[in-house]
Lab assay of single mutants.
Amino acid sequence: MDVFMKGLSKAKEGVVAAAEKTKQGVAEAAGKTKEGVLYVGSKTKEGVVHGVATVAEKTKEQVTNVGGAVVTGVTAVAQKTVEGAGSIAAATGFVKKDQLGKNEEGAPQEGILEDMPVDPDNEAYEMPSEEGYQDYEPEA
Results as ranks from 00 to 15, higher is better:
residue 1 M to H: 00
residue 1 M to K: 00
residue 1 M to L: 00
residue 2 D to A: 09
residue 2 D to N: 12
residue 3 V to W: 03
residue 3 V to G: 02
residue 3 V to D: 02
residue 4 F to M: 03
residue 5 M to I: 01
residue 5 M to G: 01
residue 6 K to D: 05
residue 6 K to T: 04
residue 6 K to W: 03
residue 6 K to N: 08
residue 7 G to W: 15
residue 8 L to H: 00
residue 8 L to S: 00
residue 9 S to H: 09
residue 9 S to C: 13
residue 9 S to Y: 15
residue 9 S to G: 13
residue 9 S to Q: 12
residue 9 S to L: 03
residue 10 K to G: 01
residue 10 K to I: 15
residue 10 K to M: 11
residue 10 K to W: 05
residue 11 A to N: 00
residue 11 A to Q: 00
residue 11 A to C: 15
residue 12 K to H: 13
residue 12 K to E: 00
residue 12 K to P: 00
residue 12 K to Q: 07
residue 12 K to V: 14
residue 13 E to Y: 04
residue 13 E to K: 04
residue 13 E to R: 13
residue 14 G to F: 13
residue 14 G to Y: 10
residue 15 V to F: 14
residue 15 V to L: 15
residue 15 V to P: 00
residue 16 V to C: 13
residue 17 A to C: 10
residue 17 A to G: 05
residue 17 A to E: 09
residue 17 A to P: 00
residue 18 A to W: 05
residue 18 A to K: 04
residue 19 A to C: 03
residue 19 A to Y: 13
residue 19 A to F: 13
residue 19 A to E: 00
residue 19 A to N: 01
residue 20 E to C: 10
residue 20 E to Q: 10
residue 21 K to Q: 07
residue 22 T to P: 00
residue 22 T to H: 02
residue 22 T to M: 12
residue 22 T to E: 00
residue 22 T to V: 13
residue 22 T to D: 00
residue 23 K to N: 01
residue 23 K to I: 01
residue 23 K to T: 04
residue 23 K to Q: 09
residue 24 Q to C: 10
residue 25 G to E: 14
residue 25 G to Y: 14
residue 25 G to A: 15
residue 25 G to T: 15
residue 25 G to M: 15
residue 26 V to E: 00
residue 26 V to P: 00
residue 28 E to M: 11
residue 29 A to C: 14
residue 29 A to N: 02
residue 29 A to S: 06
residue 30 A to F: 15
residue 30 A to P: 01
residue 31 G to S: 15
residue 31 G to Q: 10
residue 31 G to I: 10
residue 31 G to C: 01
residue 32 K to Q: 07
residue 32 K to D: 00
residue 33 T to F: 01
residue 33 T to K: 00
residue 33 T to Q: 00
residue 33 T to N: 00
residue 33 T to V: 06
residue 34 K to M: 04
residue 34 K to H: 06
residue 36 G to S: 15
residue 36 G to N: 14
residue 36 G to H: 14
residue 36 G to C: 08
residue 37 V to G: 01
residue 38 L to P: 00
residue 39 Y to T: 05
residue 39 Y to V: 11
residue 39 Y to W: 06
residue 40 V to D: 00
residue 41 G to F: 11
residue 42 S to R: 15
residue 42 S to D: 03
residue 43 K to V: 14
residue 43 K to C: 06
residue 43 K to Q: 11
residue 44 T to K: 01
residue 44 T to C: 14
residue 45 K to I: 11
residue 45 K to Y: 14
residue 46 E to C: 09
residue 46 E to S: 12
residue 46 E to Q: 07
residue 46 E to A: 11
residue 47 G to M: 10
residue 47 G to Q: 10
residue 47 G to T: 15
residue 47 G to I: 08
residue 48 V to P: 00
residue 48 V to D: 00
residue 49 V to F: 12
residue 49 V to K: 14
residue 49 V to T: 08
residue 49 V to Q: 08
residue 49 V to D: 01
residue 49 V to G: 04
residue 50 H to Y: 06
residue 50 H to R: 11
residue 50 H to S: 09
residue 51 G to W: 13
residue 52 V to W: 10
residue 52 V to P: 01
residue 53 A to F: 05
residue 53 A to N: 12
residue 53 A to G: 08
residue 54 T to A: 04
residue 54 T to S: 07
residue 55 V to W: 13
residue 55 V to M: 13
residue 55 V to K: 01
residue 56 A to T: 11
residue 56 A to N: 02
residue 56 A to R: 15
residue 56 A to E: 01
residue 57 E to P: 02
residue 57 E to K: 09
residue 57 E to M: 07
residue 58 K to N: 09
residue 58 K to Y: 08
residue 58 K to E: 02
residue 59 T to I: 03
residue 59 T to E: 00
residue 60 K to E: 01
residue 60 K to D: 00
residue 60 K to G: 03
residue 60 K to Q: 03
residue 60 K to Y: 13
residue 61 E to T: 11
residue 61 E to N: 12
residue 61 E to K: 13
residue 61 E to L: 10
residue 61 E to M: 11
residue 62 Q to K: 14
residue 63 V to Y: 11
residue 63 V to T: 03
residue 64 T to G: 04
residue 64 T to S: 12
residue 64 T to E: 10
residue 64 T to C: 10
residue 65 N to G: 08
residue 65 N to D: 04
residue 66 V to D: 01
residue 66 V to F: 07
residue 66 V to N: 01
residue 67 G to S: 08
residue 67 G to C: 12
residue 67 G to T: 13
residue 67 G to I: 10
residue 69 A to E: 02
residue 70 V to C: 03
residue 70 V to M: 14
residue 71 V to E: 01
residue 71 V to M: 11
residue 71 V to G: 02
residue 71 V to T: 06
residue 72 T to I: 06
residue 72 T to A: 13
residue 73 G to K: 10
residue 73 G to T: 10
residue 73 G to P: 02
residue 73 G to W: 04
residue 74 V to L: 12
residue 74 V to M: 08
residue 74 V to N: 01
residue 74 V to I: 03
residue 75 T to I: 12
residue 75 T to A: 15
residue 76 A to N: 11
residue 76 A to R: 14
residue 77 V to Y: 07
residue 77 V to Q: 02
residue 78 A to K: 13
residue 78 A to C: 06
residue 78 A to S: 03
residue 78 A to V: 11
residue 79 Q to S: 11
residue 79 Q to E: 06
residue 79 Q to T: 10
residue 79 Q to G: 05
residue 80 K to R: 07
residue 80 K to V: 05
residue 81 T to H: 04
residue 82 V to P: 02
residue 82 V to A: 10
residue 83 E to Y: 13
residue 83 E to A: 09
residue 83 E to L: 04
residue 84 G to S: 14
residue 84 G to K: 13
residue 84 G to H: 04
residue 84 G to E: 05
residue 85 A to K: 02
residue 85 A to S: 05
residue 86 G to K: 12
residue 87 S to Q: 15
residue 87 S to C: 12
residue 88 I to T: 03
residue 88 I to V: 03
residue 89 A to H: 08
residue 89 A to V: 15
residue 89 A to P: 06
residue 90 A to L: 11
residue 90 A to Q: 09
residue 90 A to K: 05
residue 91 A to Q: 04
residue 93 G to V: 10
residue 94 F to S: 01
residue 94 F to W: 09
residue 95 V to H: 04
residue 95 V to M: 09
residue 96 K to Q: 07
residue 96 K to V: 07
residue 96 K to M: 12
residue 97 K to L: 05
residue 97 K to E: 08
residue 98 D to L: 15
residue 98 D to I: 06
residue 98 D to A: 05
residue 99 Q to K: 02
residue 99 Q to V: 11
residue 100 L to Y: 01
residue 100 L to W: 01
residue 100 L to D: 04
residue 101 G to N: 02
residue 102 K to E: 08
residue 102 K to I: 03
residue 102 K to G: 01
residue 102 K to L: 10
residue 103 N to I: 06
residue 103 N to A: 04
residue 103 N to M: 10
residue 103 N to W: 08
residue 103 N to F: 05
residue 104 E to C: 02
residue 104 E to G: 10
residue 104 E to Y: 14
residue 105 E to I: 01
residue 105 E to L: 08
residue 106 G to S: 10
residue 106 G to D: 03
residue 107 A to D: 09
residue 107 A to E: 07
residue 107 A to K: 08
residue 108 P to G: 07
residue 108 P to H: 14
residue 108 P to E: 12
residue 109 Q to A: 02
residue 109 Q to L: 02
residue 109 Q to C: 07
residue 110 E to Q: 05
residue 110 E to N: 15
residue 112 I to R: 12
residue 112 I to T: 12
residue 112 I to Q: 10
residue 112 I to M: 13
residue 112 I to D: 03
residue 112 I to N: 08
residue 113 L to N: 02
residue 113 L to D: 11
residue 113 L to W: 11
residue 114 E to N: 12
residue 114 E to L: 07
residue 116 M to K: 03
residue 117 P to F: 05
residue 117 P to A: 08
residue 118 V to T: 06
residue 119 D to L: 06
residue 119 D to T: 12
residue 119 D to C: 14
residue 119 D to R: 11
residue 120 P to K: 09
residue 120 P to R: 11
residue 121 D to T: 13
residue 121 D to P: 07
residue 122 N to S: 06
residue 122 N to R: 11
residue 122 N to F: 06
residue 123 E to T: 09
residue 123 E to N: 13
residue 124 A to W: 08
residue 124 A to T: 02
residue 124 A to N: 10
residue 124 A to Y: 05
residue 125 Y to Q: 15
residue 126 E to G: 13
residue 127 M to H: 10
residue 127 M to Y: 12
residue 127 M to Q: 14
residue 127 M to I: 11
residue 127 M to F: 05
residue 127 M to S: 05
residue 127 M to D: 06
residue 128 P to L: 08
residue 128 P to G: 07
residue 128 P to C: 05
residue 128 P to R: 05
residue 128 P to N: 09
residue 129 S to P: 09
residue 129 S to G: 11
residue 130 E to F: 05
residue 130 E to R: 10
residue 130 E to H: 11
residue 130 E to W: 06
residue 130 E to N: 09
residue 131 E to I: 07
residue 132 G to M: 08
residue 132 G to F: 07
residue 132 G to C: 10
residue 133 Y to H: 08
residue 134 Q to P: 06
residue 134 Q to R: 10
residue 134 Q to L: 08
residue 135 D to T: 04
residue 135 D to S: 03
residue 135 D to I: 07
residue 136 Y to T: 12
residue 136 Y to Q: 06
residue 137 E to I: 06
residue 137 E to H: 06
residue 137 E to A: 08
residue 137 E to C: 08
residue 137 E to T: 06
residue 138 P to Y: 04
residue 138 P to H: 08
residue 138 P to Q: 05
residue 139 E to P: 09
residue 139 E to Q: 08
residue 139 E to S: 12
residue 139 E to Y: 10
residue 140 A to D: 11
residue 140 A to C: 10
residue 140 A to E: 14
residue 140 A to V: 10
residue 140 A to K: 15
